[in-house]
């Protein structure tokens, strides 16, 4: 019996009878972070980090029992030692470490190696087996430092403001939106948010995250104050009627996919290469730092990254399609979070 198994419900630890980020309702779930494809609805009991809990609670409501632990704090279930370690992906995100009879497995969840100034920075965890994501597991994905990307975003905003335009930047409501908000140059103008960004902001601010003021862009406050301001909105908003309330505006999209010209500039004016996932160099560094003898690869360019690792002398395998199962169809149209 392996310490962790890949089942149709998700990653499973038979010894402790717990799932990690399960796709179907289960008895006990360990959750890496609050993104909707990881913290799914319907299980009876959830365990996550203190910092991830408020968002997960906000998303799942008061029904299920949600417990939380500090980074590094160990819980033992039926002899399996379980602990959460910083993944640097979003606020509260964690890698999950399980240990039983001296054998250690780590599930990375989503992670990035660059310190974004908001999430607890990524920490490599020594293990025998490492299960890593590979959303951007090709060498074409190499990120610039956040500081440079934020400068590009601020320059773009400044230019639009000079032309009297509103800047609308598309970013995922949980994670990237706050990262951008935190490093905007608010001397340029006022910042507003789409409702779904604002509600996540409120949750995170209540747990102590410090963000510049960014009220919801409502019909009233926009009429006068909008010219030259910036609005943070989730990508879906671009395709909704919401965007039509703005007169003269320019749109920007912040995503790792913007690295390529064929995905850049489809329906928006500017692309900014900003991701909450590790780039090629980040993935490679992370794998090496674990010292793992075996690596399983999930999410993204799995076969390519696994083959590459094998060629580097690290035993690696992509997690087979049975494991992905029905998730594939769902992910078909979905992009990075």
């Amino acid at each position: 019996m392996a310490l962790l198994e890949f089942t149709p419900n998700g990653i499973y630890c038979p010894q402790a009878d717990v799932y990690i980020d399960p796709w179907k309702p289960v008895k006990r779930a360990l959750i890496t972070h609050g993104h909707a494809d990881h913290a799914r609805w319907g299980s009876k009991y959830y365990l996550c980090t203190h910092q991830a809990k408020p968002v997960i609670q906000y998303r799942l409501g008061n029904g299920p029992r949600i417990e939380s632990v500090s980074y590094g704090e160990a819980r033992t279930i039926n002899g399996v030692k379980i602990s959460f370690h910083p993944a640097g992906h979003i606020v509260g995100s964690a890698q999950i470490r399980v240990e039983h009879q001296g054998e250690v497995w780590v599930v990375s969840g989503d992670y990035k190696t660059e310190n974004d100034g908001i999430s607890t920075p990524f920490e490599p965890v020594k293990c025998n087996v490492f299960i890593t994501e590979s959303t951007f597991g090709l060498p074409v994905f190499r990120w610039q430092p956040q500081r440079e990307v934020m400068q590009e975003i601020n320059d773009w905003w400044r230019e639009n403001a000079a032309e009297g335009k509103v800047s609308i930047i598309m970013a995922y409501a949980l994670g990237k939106a706050q990262r951008i908000l935190r490093y905007l140059d608010t001397n340029i103008g006022k910042v507003f948010t789409h409702g779904s960004v604002e509600s996540v902001n409120k949750v995170l601010q209540s747990q102590g995250l410090i963000l510049p003021p960014a009220p919801k862009a409502s019909v009233d406050n926009m009429r006068n104050a909008m010219e030259g301001s910036l609005v943070i909105a989730p990508p879906q908003a671009l395709r909704s009627t919401w965007v039509r309330r703005f007169k003269d505006y320019s749109t920007g999209m912040a995503s790792g996919w913007m690295a390529m010209r064929n995905t850049n500039r489809r329906g928006y004016d500017r692309g900014f290469v900003l991701s909450d996932h590790a780039d090629w160099d980040g993935l490679n560094e992370a794998v090496l730092a674990t010292g793992a003898e075996k690596v399983f690869v999930t999410h993204g360019y799995t076969s390519q990254f696994a083959q590459w690792l094998n060629e580097q002398g690290i035993w690696a395998a992509e997690i087979g399609t049975e494991f992905h199962g029905e998730q594939l169809e769902e992910e078909d149209g979905e992009v990075e979070e």
């Binding site: 090709l138 060498p139 074409v140 994905f141 190499r142 690295a259 390529m260 010209r261 064929n262 360019y301 390519q304 083959q307 590459w308």
Partner: peptide, 20 residues
């Protein structure tokens, strides 16, 4: 092979080179 996989995803050789 990894260059070719990258090229398949990017779609343009000059761009693939610039990115890798």
């Amino acid at each position: 092979w990894l260059f070719e996989e990258s090229h398949r995803v990017v779609g343009d050789i000059a761009e693939t080179i610039a990115l890798i």
